[in-house]
Nucleic acid binder design. Sequence first.
DNA 1: GGCGCATGCTCAG
DNA 2: TGAGCCTGCGCCC
Length: 283
Amino acid sequence: MPEGHTLFRLARTLNEHFAERVVSVSSPQGRFADAAALLDGTRLEVAESYGKHLFVDFEQERRVHVHLGLYGKLAVHRGAALPPVGQVRLRLVADGTDGRSPSYADLRGAPACELMTAAEQRALLARLGPDPLRPDADWTRAWERISTSRAPVGALLMDQSVLAGVGNVYRAEVLFRHRVDPLRPGRTLRRSQVERMWKDLVELMADGVRTGRIETIHPPHDEVGVGRVLTADTADSPVFVYRRTGLPCFVCGATVRTEVLAARNLFWCPRCQPRFRSRARAG
DNA sequence: GGCGCATGCTCAG
DNA sequence: TGAGCCTGCGCCC
């Protein structure tokens, strides 16, 4: 599931296998062949993620930018490299002649796999909002965007320039956990509410890094599920509303709904997240 | 086996 | 707004 926690784990795994090692770099599929030839036989220094972006730094200030998009995959394996299967855009191999365990990694299906200069990387990072997985993240930058936007909060949470790393699953789940109407305009939210949602995302995404899965139900109930008690067996679902269209809400029993918002399927409970109405003004 | 959809994002129009 | 990327999965046959 390539939301931010997946990229964070991938960077960590790449470092465990390849950091500070001389690697063979190739592009069996051919679409990254020129860049691969440039990097081949050089030292991979470190991998790092920002939001849903992955950067792999090589010696001589060379770095590869990878974005997995909806269905890109990066598989890392221990052991000697097997012949590539399918369309392998990028392959990294550490053959073990350095005395460490041999490893290899294959990248498939990614919309972005490219060499990037330091200036290009800075420009890309400058477009990203705070990433809940980064300890130095400043959530008030997200608040500044949300509090001044008429756009629905359900669209703002998916906007990587507002928050980096949040995808469709975390969007739906955090809105449910805080009983927020996804269509509510950003600027009608209170600062304290956005702060609570941010802190919840920090914990939920850190859990995602630990487990490798998005699990937003912590039975029998948790403080942020905002003091609510589960009224149904949730054993078959790790989440409250994501992809549960037509099924009963675990808290109130109402039917979970779906609607397209910002070109993506949005899931919510119409009773737990009632439609926001701006306060009528006396006049 | 075929089909359609999916955790994302960019670009053309 | 729609196509594109071109993988993996669940579902249906």
